[in-house]
Design a protein around this nucleic acid. Sequence first.
DNA 1: CCGATATGATTGATGCGTCAAGTTAAGTTA
DNA 2: TAACTTAACTTGACGCATCAATCATATCGG
Lengths: 179, 179
Amino acid sequence: MEAHASAEGIAAVDDAVREPQWLDAREREVWLALRHLLWGLQPAVDRQLLRDSGLSGPEYSVLATLSEDPDGVVRAGEAARNLGWGRSRLSHLLRRMEAKGLISRACSPEDGRGQDIALTPAGRSAIIDAAPGHVEFVRSVVFEPLTSDQQDALRDACQRISAAIEASGECDIACGEEP
Amino acid sequence: MEAHASAEGIAAVDDAVREPQWLDAREREVWLALRHLLWGLQPAVDRQLLRDSGLSGPEYSVLATLSEDPDGVVRAGEAARNLGWGRSRLSHLLRRMEAKGLISRACSPEDGRGQDIALTPAGRSAIIDAAPGHVEFVRSVVFEPLTSDQQDALRDACQRISAAIEASGECDIACGEEP
DNA sequence: CCGATATGATTGATGCGTCAAGTTAAGTTA
DNA sequence: TAACTTAACTTGACGCATCAATCATATCGG
């Protein structure tokens, strides 16, 4: 996650291999700012959530996904797809969340392999309690410091970078659709 | 990490508490794009690193920090400060890295509490091998998709958001300086 | 109907990060 | 010098994510 040349070490690289195009000062500043955001925003959001409502970031995401369904019931695989997560990751998290009473699991009646994930009353009230503070925090750190134009520019940049990541094949999950 | 209202659950909130200012459609799109980037970029960079050079993202960061010193020797606490990490985090990582032979540790002669972290030859060659591919990947996913102006706008936005996070007190480490 | 393969989900091992103690060495005061 | 405080680092427990392996159910081709 560094990408700067930083003299030493790197300068000693074998001359036989073509030198890559190192970042110049301006680029390094861009990368530094982006990395700072990457390292800082997610933990800050998660920390606010945990402190104010006892929910971890991933737990909140799952509850939010479930709460979008009128019945609060979603197939596990579908939830994983919506979240852009792997099945394993969701499974581990659901086990912990079930133990806490936030969600419940039951075999799907239509497909014996699937699991129906359901929001429990406790889970529903947990996200209802958590949502306002979460939104306010997000608003205060990402929207208030930026003008509308800056927000739009940020969105564009994020979308372009995300597209490049997916094109690079280094994407986490489900980069393509066709079999 | 959601911040959208998403009907249901949230709409049922007690009328006694003042409704927060939910995100509108445009804002939701901005937040979605940003979250997508947050969830995607870091893993993608780490994955490229691990696949092409066997180094994890955090390991690379540590090696990069060490390689900035002429002797490849840095005090643990100083390294933690440079990286913006907690001591504990660094300590755990250093233990694993020492076991792999990437770095070595020795009690500081001037301060018996401190540890001097040193780059081993293996560590030095590891980062020399890893750096070019890393820079090229970063260049391809964050710089190539953006014009210079877009890069600058991204930098500004990141800096503003990071500043807001630090101002919020929800910052990870070392938010203030004065005792 | 049966075996081969697909798919949905779980499990276990390992690395990573955080938090809350703990340990040891330095400084500080008396 | 003895006692207190502060600072640097380590440790252990726990939650979280990934990977590879496993298991069970569906589905398809014969």
